[in-house]
Design a protein around this nucleic acid. Structure first.
Length: 331
DNA sequence: AACGCGGGGGC
DNA sequence: GCCCCAGCGTT
């Protein structure tokens, strides 16, 4: 076979694969759940969340019937909260419109909320054995180095060329295993700073030959950072209840609960009672200021909700708000 | 095509 | 600091 280095690669994967729970099943529900959790998220960060989700919601029906706040509380700390909201949308579609049966083709999968080209391909191959190549950050890195490709990542056309390349390489191999091997190499060997000495196919790597590893993949530069400052107050009523706002469906922290916003930008409280936290948020550094206001009344906060004392532990918060609550020993 | 969306880990 | 992560939805 011409592409015999692929069998070397597959052999390396079979011998060295990390022991990951979603690799031991073909249940589309479990695979779908793992793929959504792992979007833009490292395995080590997502794994404990995956385990808690499958325990709390063993089937798609359990997830489809769950309270939104309970799902968001379980998602708390993972980030990209619209993933959790799309997770619930898709769970309801599959459970209630499709009687619990996931679509088994790429073209049907990609229609579901939260499933794009990568995730639809992943589920089609892992759960249904279809020959759909996955192109994620790992695949871009591995393939651009293997063939020393200087195309800039980001356009539809370049995506398609990488997908076609991976599809060609996959031909003689079981699709699910090839896709796993592709991502595994990118995740443990062909890292941004690669460990070429341990790479099973380094003798095939054109970028290594051409000493251009550090130039691959070619990516667009990230934007310069901006600074923002936000000022929040946690109003507490005389009976110890909290007054919180649930964030709207779009934008930052969608669906999570935050303290009412006093001001942002140039607003400066010049008050030492504000707790200041620096928070790194999507390449932007935010200065967050928090304060407690006791003996508050819900009347003063239109659009906010009164959260009874016995519900405080069930409320999903963004991480910086958790930090503030922990600092005040309120949670 | 460009941008917004989190939080964490590695160096 | 900077980069990037089993990407997707919106504009």
């Amino acid at each position: 076979m011409k592409n015999s280095f692929v069998s070397t690669w597959i052999g390396w994967y079979l011998d060295n694969a990390r022991d990951l729970p979603w690799r031991e099943t073909r249940d589309p529900y479990a695979i779908w759940l793992s793929e959504i959790i792992l979007q833009q998220t490292r395995v080590n960060q997502g794994l404990p969340y995956y385990l808690r989700f499958v325990e709390s919601f063993p089937t798609v029906f359990d997830l489809a019937s769950a309270e939104e706040d309970k799902v968001l509380k379980l998602w708390q700390g993972l980030g990209y909260y619209s993933r959790a909201r799309n997770l619930m949308k898709t769970a309801k579609i599959v459970a209630f419109d499709r009687k619990g049966v996931f679509p088994n083709t790429y073209s049907e999968l990609v229609k579901l909320p939260g499933l794009g080209p990568y995730t639809a391909s992943a589920i089609a191959s892992f759960a249904f054995g279809r020959a759909e190549a996955v192109i994620d950050g790992n695949a871009y890195r591995v393939l651009s180095r293997l063939y020393d490709i200087d195309l800039e990542i980001g356009s539809q056309k370049v995506y398609e060329s990488f997908r076609q390349l991976a599809t060609d390489l996959m031909m003689a191999t079981k699709p699910s295993v090839f896709n796993q091997a592709l991502m595994e190499l990118g995740a443990v060997i062909c890292l941004p700073k690669p460990i070429c000495e341990r790479c099973p196919i380094s003798d095939q790597c054109l970028a290594l030959q051409n000493k251009s590893i550090h130039l691959r993949p070619v990516k667009k530069k990230s934007k310069p950072k901006e600074r923002q400052a936000h000022y929040y107050v946690l109003p507490i009523t005389p009976t110890g209840d909290w007054i919180l706002e649930k964030r709207p469906g779009k934008g930052i922290w969608s669906g999570l609960y935050v303290f009412p916003l006093l001001g942002e930008g140039e607003f400066n409280p010049k008050s030492p009672s504000f707790l200041q936290l620096k928070h790194l948020l999507s390449h932007k550094e935010m200065d967050l200021h928090f304060q407690i206001r006791e003996f508050a009344s819900i009347e003063d906060y239109p659009g906010a909700q009164l959260i009874p004392k016995d519900k405080h532990e069930e409320i999903p918060f963004p991480v910086p708000f958790l930090m503030a609550l922990k600092h005040w020993k309120l949670l």
